[in-house]
Design a protein around this nucleic acid. Structure first.
Length: 457
RNA sequence: GGUCCCUUCGUCUAAUGGUUAGGACACCGCCCUUUCACGGCGGCAAUACGAGUUCGAAUCUCGUAGGGAUCACCA
């Protein structure tokens, strides 16, 4: 049997981190089994669904590289088939029309909850019919027995059928509810494994009744725990960004995000670092190894993963990201300088956005240290700076001779490197910490370096 | 409140009845060094609690506490 999975978000907002991880697991499982991974947009709630949200979801999935290669399915287009099933269930006696009005329903709900009993409409056993009166169609849940689900993550879980409510499958406006649509679409799409958040776990016991009534093949289930914030409660905005794409904007790479999200709740058997490369994980993935307890989102770990990726990825790729992100327009010399210094700079940041502070001294040919406090110091040591500038003027331009030149200077003057290091660094970069000075001087080039070193403060 | 699920270092997790309870991140220290980093080495730190089963429990059972999910004509 060919594995078919689906990610089924409702387009009511941005793509949430939790949703993204659900998508990743669906993707991973399908790929592992050479199956199909589908995306279905659950846009049946016309009041809350928006086109922007649909765009945001695709945007997020595309960024991570886990959008479906198959045709995207829009649930709203399938409504007619869902309605048909609702009436089929009605005809077969597995569902009934309920004529309860809002107030009656409310009273019933309060009463049911007080008794700890599920909602069972008084119309359940009625033969009454009146097409002119508004009604909903409710599913006739079994009253006895138990329903057992063997869930890949949750294990074997049984629930007494008596706690199942007669859920609405068709609204009074003749539109199907999620409870019905989801089941019918999953069936029509040939979904073999339903991998979703465990906020749907309770739904599974109710939805499976429809499948039973219709004698359809049951899909396998994997209900994965939600992602929590650092305080253990459900991840929300007060824990930081929950919008996946915000992390792109913060300067995280999609590779790091993919790797981090994937290992939140899942671990490969070996637990080796490189198992968390997404491509490798495709082979290692298994639903059984997903943890049952919710994992907490920890940005420190994400930072660490991201910084490691930044130092692994092609410089050209990072360069492209920077150019796009900061709308830089560089000439060939500026490009060369930036690319040459990038590997060293990347060792010093977690997210590439933090490189921003270094652009000016690298890119701007006419850069000079502008901070007052620093200029005060540079004034004091202006002579040393100028002397070094003079020395470098006649120096052959390679790292070795530049280094030799500096070493000779401090020897002649009986100085230590730390006597000239900080002031050179300030002069050349305007900063107190930066990559190796020799590399900076070399990469900035003779003209620019000397301009900065010969300046009279 | 009913139903269901969960609980190993601060965090992510490993250990499927016998381990000095392992690793990674974070944190701290040392080394390297030209600052900041990288890197290398080391350290701190956990089986929620209480019973039971067993020669032996993180692991099985029960209870307690804490946390989470859900209980819509939303999905």
């Amino acid at each position: 049997m060919k594995v078919v999975t689906r990610f089924a978000p409702s387009p009511t907002g941005y793509l949430h981190i939790g949703g993204a991880r659900t998508a990743i697991f669906n993707y991973l499982f399908a790929k592992k089994h050479n199956g199909k991974y589908l995306v279905r947009i659950e846009d049946t709630d016309t009041k809350r669904s928006t086109n922007e949200a649909v765009g945001a979801i695709h945007n997020g999935l595309n960024w991570l590289g886990i959008n479906s290669t198959e045709k995207i399915i829009y649930q709203s287009k399938n409504l007619a088939s869902h309605v048909k099933i609702a009436y089929e269930l009605l005809d077969k006696g597995f569902a009934y029309k309920c004529f309860l009005n809002t107030k009656e329903l409310n009273d019933l709900r309060i009463k049911s909850r007080a008794n700890g009993k599920p909602i069972k409409s008084p119309w359940r056993n009625s033969k009454f019919n009146n097409e002119k009166k508004e009604y909903v169609i409710r599913l006739k849940m079994p009253l006895n027995g138990t329903t057992t689900i063997k869930d890949y993550v949750q294990g074997k879980v049984s629930v007494k059928n008596e706690i199942l409510d007669d859920m609405i499958i068709l609204r009074s406006d003749k539109t199907p509810t999620y409870m019905l649509s989801s089941v019918v679409d999953d069936y029509n799409m040939g979904i073999t494994h339903i991998i979703r958040g465990d906020d749907h776990f309770n739904n599974a016991f109710r939805q499976i009744q429809i499948i039973n009534f219709l004698n359809w093949d049951k899909p396998s289930y994997a209900h994965i725990p939600l992602i929590h914030g650092t305080d253990g409660s459900k991840l929300s905005k007060r824990h930081g960004a929950t919008n996946l794409i915000d992390y792109r904007d913060m300067g995280f790479t999609s590779e790091a995000m993919l790797s981090y999200l994937m290992q939140l709740g899942w671990t490969s058997h070996d637990n080796k670092e490189d198992d968390y490369e997404f491509k490798k994980a495709v082979n290692l993935f298994s639903l059984e190894k997903i943890n049952k307890s919710p994992a907490k989102f920890d940005i420190k770990k994400l930072n660490n993963i991201n910084s490691r990726y930044l130092n692994k990825i092609d410089i050209d790729k990072i360069y492209k990201l920077l150019i796009e992100r900061f709308k830089l327009v560089l000439n060939i010399h500026q490009e060369k300088r930036l690319k040459a210094l990038l590997p060293e700079l990347l060792k010093r940041v977690d997210v590439y956005i933090d490189l921003k502070d270094d652009f000016e001294w690298i890119i701007d040919d006419n850069f000079l240290c502008k901070e007052k406090d620093k200029i005060k110091i540079l004034k004091k040591y202006n002579l040393i700076i100028n002397e070094i500038g003079d020395l470098l003027k006649n120096c052959e331009w390679n790292k070795e001779t530049i280094n030799h030149c500096l070493k000779t200077y401090i020897q002649d003057k009986s100085l230590k490197f730390r006597d000239i290091g900080p002031i050179l660094r300030m002069t050349l970069t305007g900063k107190t910490s930066a990559p190796d000075l020799v590399s900076i001087i070399y990469e900035l080039g003779c003209t620019i370096s000397l301009n900065r070193l010969n300046y009279k403060y």
